[in-house]
Design a protein around this nucleic acid. Structure first.
Lengths: 184, 184
DNA sequence: TGTACATCAGTGAACGCGCGTTCACTGATGTAC
DNA sequence: TGTACATCAGTGAACGCGCGTTCACTGATGTAC
């Protein structure tokens, strides 16, 4: 093990990256410092060389999760040859997105936790929500109301599809949301 | 304090009722047995005269929360002179519903927790979701896909409106969803 | 370039705390006679 | 109806556990000369 400044930055990066995935999978309450540090290949005692408190880690992980999931969606859309509404619907409402919450939309994964959480968490989510809605607006002819409603539909469909124990119903929810948003 | 059979039933009722509210406000992880029993006016030791485990309490509280919130919405619609789509949109997407999660839709409040939770929890949510979607179908000319998408929009809008720190944006989300669903 | 020393990332034991669960106990309830 | 006894809802102390946080220590890093 090294102790250089570069090593520290690398450790910090690794911790936040793992936390950004875990927080989407397991929620704010699902992150424990010993578990997180072990996953990063470190012992829990070193945690406070990187963060003043658990709260600060949560804030950094949330911020990272939000940036990561937006970057991912933009990248995936670019690959498909430009951001169209249909390409966004297809990737957001894809079973793979439902099945990989740790790599998926952080706004959806964290909405309930943040609704119950600290003001700082709400500020982070709100800022990223505004950005996502603006992107959707551009795809919907600058119709802000339609963009807000469409985003609600996306988030609701993803969360319901994850909460249901019948795979057929889960798929049906994703398809129904896709059709509703594509048709309109 | 009494110890009659009637007293026991009353205590059980009180514990589950409080848990059904708390689980919507604070989530599955936000319920603690000592806190819950104290809120019910009892000491924590008596908990296991009523439930085999914390898991069983969670299941009963979930079931109760789901029944309660559906009963409430049906009752409120009956008062307004019959269940119409507009009356449902107005009550579901009302700021009061957003501000009182403990009395509100359990499917929305618990969707993320249940998505991360035990199969038993998913079974409960799925059963109640099917019921709610059928009610929505009746209001939407038996269009199942439209009902599924509309339900996703309702849930997504409610959760996003709770997660945001700007009251104007929060209201805007509720209005946008209402307009989108009423217009279609 | 080589040496002495301060810094600090990471270690692992220890802390106090609240949790879920167990248990011996209490006293009112409700049944058997 | 009255008495003796079993039941069991509720009490409160105790348990082991994992948590967030603290701390003395270590040894590699990086700087001053």
């Amino acid at each position: 093990m090294g102790h250089s400044q570069a090593d520290k930055a690398e450790s910090h990066e690794r911790i936040v990256g793992i936390a950004a995935r875990r927080i989407r999978e397991a929620g704010v309450g699902g992150i424990s410092i010993p578990e997180l540090m072990a996953a990063a290949g470190l012992t829990h005692g070193g945690f406070y060389r990187h963060f003043a408190s658990r709260e600060q880690l949560i804030a950094e992980a949330l911020e990272r999760a939000m940036s990561e999931s937006k970057a991912r969606s933009v990248r995936s859309l670019a690959k498909r040859g430009g951001a169209t509404l249909d390409s966004l619907l297809n990737s957001y409402l894809h079973p793979q997105h439902r099945d990989e919450p740790g790599k998926g939309c952080a706004i959806a994964a964290m909405a309930v936790d943040v609704g119950r959480g600290e003001p700082e968490q709400k500020e982070i989510l709100t800022r990223h929500l505004r950005g996502s809605v603006e992107e959707l607006e551009a795809l919907l002819g600058e119709d802000r109301q339609a963009a807000l409603a469409a985003f609600a539909t996306l988030v609701g469909a993803l969360l319901l599809s994850r909460a249901v124990d019948d795979p057929a119903l889960s798929d049906e929810i994703l398809r129904a949301a896709k059709n509703a948003l594509a048709a309109g």
